[in-house]
């Protein structure tokens, strides 16, 4: 008879492999907080969130980058959310099977295009268009918003479609049986019933936009300044790290890690909100959250991530 691995051994090794991803997450968390945390303590949160970013003179305030990230992210949502939800409604409720079989893979491809390609398209197509038709230098918060608005589509659409498809058929039947049209049914019953899932889709889309780096660097201009119009150049938190990491040392380097901590916390909050909206954060995941936080505490008392 052939040798067979005992079931238990297989199970345990697979579990170990799966848990290693959690371990990697923990290690990254600990590393970021260890590199950036001391500087946060040293300069104080007040100074760190001030508007003065001048590493040569030991000024590490990231307020302008927070504004930049906020500007392109809200712009991206303004563009991506209406498009994304409309597309999700078509996909989940209206499209005949053949149209769906084209739309769905197309959106998946959209998610798979490398961000540098989006950025490149932005430089070649979008920036000249903005320059000639609207004005300004081209590279701007507006350009970043448009590119990010496209890039968040797969996230917004995918999760919204899931939310719409999770609405029980019986709600639609009840509405149609009362003589409602399909659109009335969608607008008055299906969308409200899917609301929490759609909110989660928007929040995760926001996370995607906040975290995107390469495409934004290529089209947003990256000047550290307070934007006064959508046509002004902005620098995002992610761009700040990527642009300066190559030559930063000492406190400057630590300040970039501290910027990473800010991003990390933002993404964590967004993910938690999205999970809360979807009602996914049940008792068991709270236990995991607590465990992860405690484990991180044990490794390094100063690091206190509320990662799930």
């Amino acid at each position: 008879m052939r040798f067979r691995l005992p079931e238990k051994v297989v199970e345990r090794s697979l579990l170990l492999v799966a848990m290693s991803s959690v371990a990697i997450l923990l290690l990254i968390t600990v590393f970021i907080f260890r590199e950036g945390g001391p500087l946060l303590v040293q300069v104080g949160l007040g100074n760190f969130f001030s508007g003065a970013w001048d590493p040569q003179h030991d000024q590490y305030g990231i307020a302008l980058m927070v504004v930049g990230s906020f500007a392109v992210t809200s712009g991206a949502l303004l563009i991506g959310v209406p498009f994304g939800i409309a597309c999700a409604i078509v996909l989940a409720e209206m499209a005949p099977p053949r149209a769906r079989s084209i739309l769905k893979p197309a959106i998946e491809v959209l998610a798979g295009i490398p961000s540098v390609v989006y950025g490149f398209m932005g430089i070649v197509v979008l920036l000249p268009m903005i320059r000639t038709h609207i004005g300004g230098p081209g590279a701007s918060a507006l350009a970043g918003s448009i590119i990010l608005g496209i890039m968040v589509l797969p996230t917004v659409i995918g999760i919204s479609v899931d939310a719409l498809q999770a609405v029980p058929r019986s709600y639609r039947e009840a509405s149609l049986a009362l003589g409602a049209t399909q659109w009335q049914t969608i607008r008055r019953v299906v969308l409200p019933a899917a609301r929490s899932g759609i909110v989660a889709a928007v929040i995760l889309g926001m996370g995607r936009a906040v975290g995107e780096t390469m495409a934004v660097i290529m089209v947003a201009g990256n000047s550290v300044q307070m934007p006064h119009s959508p046509l002004d150049s902005v620098r995002t938190l992610t761009a700040n790290i990527a642009l300066e990491m190559g030559y930063a040392a000492g406190d400057h380097r630590a300040a970039l890690f501290a910027t990473g901590i800010v991003l990390f916390v933002i993404i964590m909050i967004l993910n938690t909100l999205a999970n809360l909206a979807r009602g996914r954060l049940k008792k068991r995941s709270v236990v995991v959250v607590t465990l992860a936080a405690t484990a991180a505490d044990l490794v390094k008392p100063r690091a206190k991530p509320e990662e799930q």
Binding site: P168, S170, Y171, E173, A174, S175, A177, L178, G179, A180, T181, Q184, R188, V189, P192, A193
Partner: peptide
């Protein structure tokens, strides 16, 4: 229907639904 299928809305909105549409 076989299974009660009220909309996940208020009692009032459930009854008012058809009249509204």
């Amino acid at each position: 229907f076989q299974r009660p299928n009220p909309f996940p809305l208020s009692v009032y909105e459930n009854v008012a639904y058809g009249a509204r549409i």
